[in-house]
Design a binder for these strands. Structure first.
Lengths: 248, 248
DNA sequence: TCTGTTTATCGTCAGGCAGACGACTATGAT
DNA sequence: ATCATAGTCGTCTGCCTGACGATAAACAGA
């Protein structure tokens, strides 16, 4: 177990993979890119890339995110501008056979973003898209139809993290534009959880939780119906008591 | 961004570090080992070591755990014997300057174990010990007195994970022997959270949560006082509704 | 203009759970 | 015998949640 035996620390390649989630048309969607090379050529995969030699993991994830989407990431652990998407580390995947070419350890990150115009991956519109996670995960049940590598597992872990985290934190606001209505926030919960929530109880709950929402002033009718009050995300990070996900 | 440019994937060393927690004498304690080499020679550090070339991350963590403590780890994600300690991945730390020797990415793992006789690290009793996490984290506030590398941060993250996870899962039983009393389980919560809990409400809560505890038969008076019923951990993993941590 | 549709917002009510705490039980120690 | 310790069962009150009625404010179409 001598740490100075060179054979004891074989070289690894380290990558970051991104689970970028958003809510589009009432469905939870993930960003996927088409692979241009072997292995898994032509298959869809999570965006990602190699960590550079002098780069922190979160910085590598933020760089890849900016390259793929133009989003400015915002790691909540670091002070900085609050203008971008939420980024947090998800988990690390290091099965020796997860990449047939070489030993690759991938540090997956989770990004939650508001609905965006359209992905731009190197200008090629055909090589990146938002896909409903239900489709991606269902396709991954049939071998050779789903995501490349172990990305279906990574995506599933990211979705599960998002589903549980909006329960006890104010993270659902990361899916919303800077100013949003209670109804828009409710549709985020409904899309992520895949359930229908009672609008009246939801309204009572979120407006009654201190620090969750602060009035932004003004109203909007962009959802049709009666004008709704606009809110911004409050400072609270943890919801106490939490939002309750209905029973299965 | 070509993944075949050799300069794009510089070699990394990959290690696993272990946050091994237990409850001893009413205090949450972590396993630390004394470093025998530079850098940080003579300082306390988390146990850990390099991942081998053909080894999965969880396997490396389990191997290091067995080497340091003799514990048989039990990754809940994998089927297997239920006889060991709880092991789960915690987070990955990859600051370029976290190890002055070279670029090291460390995948930290969290282990929850019942109270153990005594650590054995290569037979040297002076080179490993259980230390209360409060002491370790307080010492790490003064520079050059605390844990080596970024291990204070890793330990703090592991403790925070344990604190929040016993809230909504049955993981607190991982700190207990196979058969335990409600009072022993309560003392686990009190040690991990650092609060006092009402014995009567706690008893009502844990015995009323389906699947949390199953009677093991028999009683014990090892804590003094009236004999207490013995329980084993039930099958439930998630507690719904969760245990509520008292306000700060 | 009236009516129906959609969405937002306010209220009410009953059931359940948690915190506070009283009461009783069963052991060992002095 | 008495006390200290720890476990177990109840009670009561307040708060939160789920179910759901009612009203308000916009738009679409007859």
């Amino acid at each position: 177990m001598s740490p100075y035996d060179p054979s004891a620390y074989p070289p690894f390649a380290v990558t970051v993979d991104l689970v970028v989630l958003t809510v589009r048309r009432h469905a939870l969607c993930a960003l996927v890119v088409r692979r241009g090379e072997q292995p898994f050529q032509g298959r869809w995969a999570l965006p990602g890339g190699f960590v550079r030699g002098d780069e922190d993991l979160a910085a590598a994830a933020a760089r890849e995110l900016a390259e793929e989407t133009g989003l400015c990431a915002h790691d909540p652990a670091e002070p900085g501008a609050d203008n971008g998407a939420h980024l947090e580390q998800l988990a690390t995947y290091g099965d020796p056979k997860r990449d047939p070419r070489m030993r690759v350890v991938s540090v997956a990150h989770l990004v939650l973003a508001p609905d965006l115009p359209a992905p731009r991956a190197g200008g090629d519109a055909n090589s990146a898209r938002w896909a409903p996670v239900d489709e991606l995960l269902a396709a991954s049940d049939q071998e050779a139809a789903g995501l490349a590598f172990d990305h279906a597992r990574i995506l599933a872990d990211g979705v599960e993290r998002a589903r549980s985290k909006i329960e006890y934190s104010s993270l659902a606001t990361a899916f919303c534009p800077p100013a949003f209505t209670v109804g828009e926030l409710r549709r985020v919960y409904e899309a992520v959880w895949g359930v229908a929530l009672d609008p009246r109880n939801f309204h009572r709950k979120v407006t009654g939780t201190p620090g969750f929402l602060v009035p932004a002033g003004g109203t909007t009718t962009r959802q049709g119906g009666r004008p709704a009050q606009l809110f911004r995300a409050g400072g609270a990070n943890l919801l106490n008591p939490p939002m309750l996900r209905p029973e299965v």
